[in-house]
Structure formats: C-alpha cells, structure tokens
C-alpha cells in the first residue's frame, strides 16, 4: 500500500476532530476489511492522507436491549451480532443479514458501522490500478458509468445514482452511477425501521442511505456512525431476510429482500418490504406494501405485491434476470 499517516483515536470526539483536521482527506478505519482492499488496489480517486483508527475507542461495541428496543454500538462486530442471543431471538432478520455477509473471518473483523458505510463493490470502480487500471468510470472523472456499455449483470435495475445529491427520480436517471448499494445489513435495518445515530444527527435508516455517485450514504466527510437503534418490533411481526447469490458464503447479493409483516389473524396490518442490490440504495417497495394492507395474505397477494415491487424497474442489457429473481424473493418474503 502507498503511504498514509495513522492515528489511533481514543474518543469519538478525537476521531471527529481528526477527520475535520484532514479536511476530507482522512478515512476512518474500523474492521478494515473493505477499506484496506480499496487502498491496496488504489481504488479511490484521491488516496487518503491518513487513517483514523476507531478500534481504540472504548465502549462502542455494545449490543443492548431494553423495552424500547435494541441499541448497537457502531463497533459491534458482525460475528457478535450473529451470536447475540437477543438478536437471534427477537431481531433474527438482523442476525440473518449479518450472517449472510462474506466469510467467518471477515465477520470476526468487520463491524456493523463499517458495513453500513462501506464503499460500493462495482467491478469497474474497483478495477485494480496495477493491471491496466483504473477504469475511468463516472466516479473517477469519466463521462459515463462504465456499466452502461460494459458488463452490467450485477448492476442496478432501478436506474442510476446522480452525480451529486441533487434529488432526482432514480428511475429516470440514465447518466448516473449504476453501482448497487452493497450493504446487506442496510436492507434489514430499513425493514425494521431502525435509526442511525451519527456524530451529527439521528435519522431513519431509510434516509441514511442516499446514494450519489460519490457516496452510498449521507455521511459527511467529518461524520461517523455511532449507534444503530432498532425499535421493539410490533407484536405479530413476521421477519424474513433472503439473499440471492451464486454461492452462499462470500458473495455480495445479486438481490436481497428484507421484510417485516404485521399480521392479525392472517390479515396484513402493516408491511415493510425492502430490496437490496437492485438499485444504488435500498429500495422500499411501498406500492407492494400498500396493496397488502388490510388483505388476507395468500399467494395471490404475494404475487401481486411482487409485481408491484418491480413495476418501476428498468433493467440494463444483461440484468433482466435480476427482476425475475427479485420478484421471487418478494413473493417468498410474503408467502414463504
């Protein structure tokens, strides 16, 4: 790796101060499993001047449960989340999502905060410098997203993320970045209506993931995730998490779906259905949720909802299959 400075932060305040000192030219290192690969391959448009290690901050790796819900420190390890009895019992969708990440070794090292803040996995963006790279994609000063003309089998079926955070209807943007949001946990958190607490604000998970071609989240360059808060799930809530991959371990999602249905005698009172890896950010299937409310959940309702969930999709040349798979996953999320 090319040289960088390295600082161990002893408190969140110190980490934030260091971040602002470097004026956007420093990166936070938590588990390091994503960041170090990106540094090794010299993926970033600008190589960071410094890394700020937050593993040295005490007390950020808690998993606490009370009557209001679950609070998870940003430095809680994915393996610890998977093993946590309370997560397994009451928030199993989160346990499943965390378990679906990468490999056992990576889950031993990676943190939930890092998972949420990780960079996209797009193979044009990640193309390593040393074998004829970088590929000059939209994120690196190119005019177009490389996925438009290139192999886009894993890219977005719901349009592109705009170059900047100027709000645009995703479905209509053809000029942005087609990389999909990489976080498996994000999808589950939105389905559970979790909040993300950062050093600057607290906001619903759904608003935290606002993709642009520069970032998958709303985090400012001097802001970091502190805590994840998941409200106590409603009585009768049925949680499901499903991730389609070519292989069970290691792979990033081709499509993932997290759902939380609140049923009363088979009637759907509330539904939250979230799709991952289909768009630059997790996609709430609001139309699908709406058509279910007040109806007895059966296979027909599931099929109808699945069609609604994918109604706005606009696949690229090579990823129409993702639409089909996404429908199947939504259907299964609703009707087993």
């Amino acid at each position: 790796m090319k040289q960088f400075e390295h600082h161990d932060a002893l408190s969140i305040e110190e980490a934030v101060a260091l971040l602002s000192d470097y004026e956007g030219k420093a990166k936070i290192i938590a588990g390091g499993t994503d960041l170090l690969g990106a540094l090794r391959d010299e993926v970033f448009l600008e190589y960071p001047e410094a890394l700020i290690n937050i593993k040295t901050i005490d007390g950020l790796d808690y998993i606490r449960s009370d009557e209001k819900g679950l609070a998870i420190g940003a430095m809680a390890g994915l393996a610890d989340i998977v093993k946590s009895p309370v997560v397994k019992k009451e928030y199993q969708m989160l346990a499943e999502a965390a378990y679906s990440v990468a490999t056992p070794q990576i889950r031993n090292m990676a943190t939930i905060g890092g998972n949420l803040a990780q960079d996209v996995r797009c193979w044009f963006y990640r193309y390593p410098r040393r074998i004829g790279g970088p590929m000059v994609c939209l994120r690196k000063g190119g005019k177009f997203c490389s996925a438009l003309a290139g192999d886009n089998r894993y890219h977005s079926i719901f349009g592109a993320a705009a170059l900047s955070d100027i709000s645009l209807d995703l479905g209509k943007v053809r000029k942005g970045c087609f990389a999909v949001g990489p976080s498996d946990i994000a999808v589950a958190l939105i389905a559970m209506d979790a909040s993300i607490v950062t050093t600057k604000r607290s906001l619903p998970a759904e608003l935290f993931f606002k993709a642009t071609a520069l970032s998958s989240t709303v985090l400012d360059s001097d802001e970091l995730v502190k805590e994840i808060e998941i409200p106590k799930l409603p009585m009768g809530a049925v949680q499901r998490y499903d991730k389609f991959t070519l292989r069970k371990p290691i792979d990033f999602a081709v499509v993932s779906v997290a759902s939380m249905l609140t049923l009363n005698n088979g009637v759907c009172e509330d539904a939250r259905i979230v799709l991952g890896a289909v768009a630059p950010e997790p996609v709430r299937a609001r139309k699908a949720e709406q058509v279910m409310k007040g109806r007895i959940v059966d296979e027909d309702v599931a099929l109808e909802a699945a069609e609604h969930a994918l109604a706005g999709s606009s696949p690229l040349r090579m990823n129409e299959y993702k639409v089909e798979i996404a429908k199947v996953l939504v259907k299964h999320a609703i009707w087993g």
């Binding site: 170090l36 890394l51 393996a79 070794q105 990576i106």
Partner: peptide, 13 residues
C-alpha cells in the same frame, strides 16, 4: 482467540 485475515490487519493496530 479469533480467526482473522492477517492480510487485512494493519500491524500498527
């Protein structure tokens, strides 16, 4: 006590 990937750990940490 944990299995970790030594290529993804900085020695300084």
């Amino acid at each position: 006590g944990k299995a970790v990937l030594s290529c993804k750990v900085l020695t300084i940490e």
